[in-house]
Design a protein around this nucleic acid. Structure first.
Lengths: 164, 164
DNA sequence: TATTGTTATACTCTATAACTATA
DNA sequence: TATAGTTATAGAGTATAACAATA
């Protein structure tokens, strides 16, 4: 953390280690962000070996769990606009992870399912995710886990992502 | 805490409420992300009235707390590359929030301080942030707070944002 | 008229690499 | 050579608006 003070003259201004964070030090929002960034970076690194990124990952898992889901519903579940999904799905279809089948009942809709290749990817990704979760779990005393999750859920539900 | 279920008719296909999240439901990483997004969105909305965004906010607060800090040190404290700061600081200097003064001792460096206008903005932003923190605090039982922060810190420090 | 999905476009945030000016 | 800061550029990731097909 603090490298042995090198024999430089005292740095003229505030150096990394010297930076005062002030009330940031005790701010929930600040630490929430830090933790999320760290978790996300670690996850990206782990999953990066599979050449699938965050949006793709969420889509695969959610389609796997909800075969036949429409794009609009998927977008809502991911908290993203439908237009943001188009390129992701296009890519996943092109790479044969996902199948799109037009609905006969309502020909505006496309039902999304995983191809068998996609299902393989799914279980591989779930293995990554499980490892990642184990890594996170190591930061939490087992008896605190439930309450920790509860608080996160409360924050997510009380402060609506997009209110008006 | 939980908004009263609105009286809508049951939707046709896998709609938001129907979507199965699977193990996501119990995943720390997932809820961490959700909570952070909600917190960030709420904060942005609150601070949006002041026409200052996240990067600007962090810079102002950190400069306020560390007058004379250099750009490189500020970047490290924010976890961002120095080049990412250039446009932010340029904007803050142009709008007279921040003053840059070249160091006499080392003429490569610039010491950053808040102008008096910047200091006003600082206290106004801190008021916003304090309200935001109060909103977050309402999601946490007081006796859980310390442990909650501890866990977040552990996650942030154990999973390094950029390892190799 | 309303909804599903696409296209076109633009904006934010960020990083990498090459540059300059100093050291 | 190494460091502080800038510039140029690129790439994720996202949203808005207008559109075609369908309801």
């Amino acid at each position: 953390m603090s490298s042995p003070t090198p024999d430089r003259e005292p740095p003229p201004a505030a150096e990394p280690a010297d930076v005062r964070l002030g009330w940031f030090e005790h701010a929930v929002g600040f630490h929430l962000r830090r933790a999320q960034e760290a978790s996300f970076a670690a996850f990206k690194q782990r999953v990066g070996q599979v050449d699938i990124r965050a949006g793709h990952f969420a889509a695969i898992v959610l389609i796997g769990q909800n075969p036949g889901i429409t794009q609009t519903a998927l977008g809502k579940a991911m908290g993203r606009d439908k237009s943001s999904l188009t390129p992701i799905l296009e890519d996943l279809v092109r790479r044969d992870f996902v199948l799109r089948e037009r609905s006969d009942a309502d020909r505006r809709r496309y039902g999304l399912t995983l191809s068998s290749h996609g299902q393989q990817a799914w279980s591989s990704l779930e293995r990554c995710a499980a490892e990642h979760e184990r890594e996170l779990a190591r930061c939490i005393e087992p008896e605190d886990r439930e309450r920790f999750l509860q608080i996160l859920q409360r924050i997510a539900s009380v402060l609506p992502p997009s209110s008006p």
